[in-house]
Amino acid sequence: MINDLSAETIYNALNEVMDPEIPVVSLVEMGIIRHVAVKDSAVTVTMTPTFSGCPALIEMQTLIRDKVRELGADNVHVETAIAPPWSSDWITDEGRRKLKQFGLAPPQAHGGNVVMTFFDPVACPRCDGTDTTLKNSFGSTLCRAIWYCNSCQDAFEQFKSL
């Protein structure tokens, strides 16, 4: 155990761990890392699932553990907390920018009332146009919806508001 390993150092390092399903956005940018605690020689990282059935959950826990061990800690616990439930509002501005660059329209901000977003158009990540149509609330992963851009005349995916 490296003595000067601080919670802040660990948190910053976790910003290099990418979401397995969206490999350009980090777990920190996704708002998945809730808390890092260092006590004596033990490191506890608390993370949160985006969707309850997310198949990447175990993979993310492994990636977190490996990353913290790389920093020199041997005693690493990764805990999962579901309260309060993860919200797509927790994705950072940088995370949203990277989602869009990756081709995924970022989720609309909803402040806790996701139903309100059902009536808002989603901007196409390619042309920024809002002449778009929802084709399917469900997509290639639990967190994605499929849209169609009437200007580009092509489909695109959106990270769903949750």
Binding site: F51, S52, G53, C54, P55, F138, G139, L142
Partner: peptide, 8 residues
Amino acid sequence: NIAQDELG
């Protein structure tokens, strides 16, 4: 997707 959510 719905099935996977229900399992979750």
